[in-house]
């Protein structure tokens, strides 16, 4: 009767939360890849995990401390115009170390540290689902505007300053989306699985179809498909969801060399 477990009301909220996050994280990941900032997603996820563990240590809601930590990291990233992979690597190193050190020295912290690094999808509740829904609806509402703004800035970096058009609205909104999605991803599916959702679907989608809009759409389809396969396999096989998701995404990524091979022929 294992197959009926999937339809158990207990799993509905986690299933829907993860579905919204799969779509949102893969879309935002597409923009991060376009801006060549994809590694920052792991840096911000790791820092937000450290913030969440600090929330446990301080006895305050983890969402506040995770958002504060992630926003601080994003602010440092955006204030430094030369920030790049080396800086994102330092964020990953510091975030990982701080998470585990805080966890080792906090009552219940060890469990919390494991939870935020590995994920706790089955224990997500209505608050997580509401957050994921708000994230996805807002992202879809601003997608067309944000896409044009970020692409223009990528290829014509001084277009906005040259024409006295304020660039801060799209920069702030995109930074906010990255922070909010990294925090929600970290406290729902874990820091590493959230990063996999940011990175792998666009990494595949950008190679297998031509066109910006199509590649974003295919990235979302890949993320949702990988999520559903992992969720079903984890529930039915009684396996941890986060590592399974990463394995499934890695298996999906095997299509990349195949597509490249076919194109070469």
């Amino acid at each position: 009767m294992n197959d009926f477990i999937l339809f158990d009301p207990l799993f509905r909220v986690p299933l829907l939360t993860g579905l919204c996050l799969a779509a949102a994280l893969s879309l935002i990941g597409g923009f991060l890849k376009m801006r060549e900032e994809w590694l920052s997603a792991l840096g911000i996820s790791q820092i937000s995990a450290a913030g969440a563990v600090a929330g446990v240590a301080l006895g305050v809601p983890v969402i506040f401390t995770a958002v504060a930590a992630a926003a601080g990291a994003a602010l440092i990233k955006d204030l430094n115009p030369k920030s790049g992979n080396s800086h994102y690597a330092m964020m990953i190193i510091l975030g990982w170390a701080a998470s585990l050190l805080l966890a080792a020295n906090t009552y219940h912290g060890e469990v919390a540290g494991e939870t935020f690094l590995r994920g706790q999808l089955y224990f997500t509740h209505g608050g997580h689902l509401a957050g994921a829904l708000i994230l996805l609806v807002f992202l879809l509402a601003v997608l067309k505007w944000l896409s044009k703004r970020l692409l223009t800035e990528r290829f014509f970096p001084d277009y906005y300053s040259a024409n006295n058009i304020a660039a801060f609205p799209h920069r702030i909104i995109f930074a906010g989306l990255v922070v909010f999605s990294a925090v929600l991803g970290t406290v729902s599916i874990g820091a590493f699985p959230a990063f996999a959702m940011f990175f792998v679907p666009p990494w595949i989608g950008f190679v297998i179809v031509d066109g910006w809009k199509k590649s974003l759409a295919v990235s979302v389809l890949i993320a949702v498909a990988a999520y559903l396969v992992s969720f079903a396999a984890a529930v039915l096989g009684d396996q941890p969801f986060g590592p399974l998701l990463m394995i499934v995404l890695a298996l999906f990524a095997m299509v990349r060399p195949l597509v490249k091979l076919v194109r070469r022929k």
């Binding site: 890849k33 376009m34 277009y159 040259a162």
Partner: peptide, 21 residues
């Protein structure tokens, strides 16, 4: 109204954006 073509624009790796886009 200004557009600026930068010297040696960097070709982005693996970006599916079309010339038309």
């Amino acid at each position: 109204q200004i557009t600026h073509h930068w010297q040696r624009p960097e070709l982005p790796p693996e970006l599916a954006l079309l010339g038309r886009e």
